[in-house]
């Protein structure tokens, strides 16, 4: 298993929760959507992309027993 990709996924999971955004009305807005929402969605898209493209590197079936 690639440690770099696992760490990257964990970081993206942490960043997907908008705890680090300052409290406010949700702005700025891009295309009518709050920035914090778009950042969260981008994090999930990146995780999906990493797993979809690099899954064989995560695949650790050992010897099965």
């Amino acid at each position: 298993m690639s440690r770099f990709e696992v760490r990257l996924i964990l970081v993206l999971l942490v960043l997907s929760v908008p705890w680090y955004f300052p409290a406010g009305d949700g702005g700025p807005f891009i295309g009518g959507m709050p920035l914090w929402f778009l950042v969260s969605f981008a994090c999930y898209s990146a995780i999906a992309g990493i797993v979809a493209l690099r899954l064989p590197r995560f695949w650790d079936d050992g010897d099965g027993d």
């Binding site: 929760v17 908008p18 406010g24 009305d25 807005f29 709050p34």
Partner: peptide
């Protein structure tokens, strides 16, 4: 639309 509170996070 607001940034979720700490509790929600």
């Amino acid at each position: 639309l607001a940034v979720p509170s700490w509790d929600v996070c």
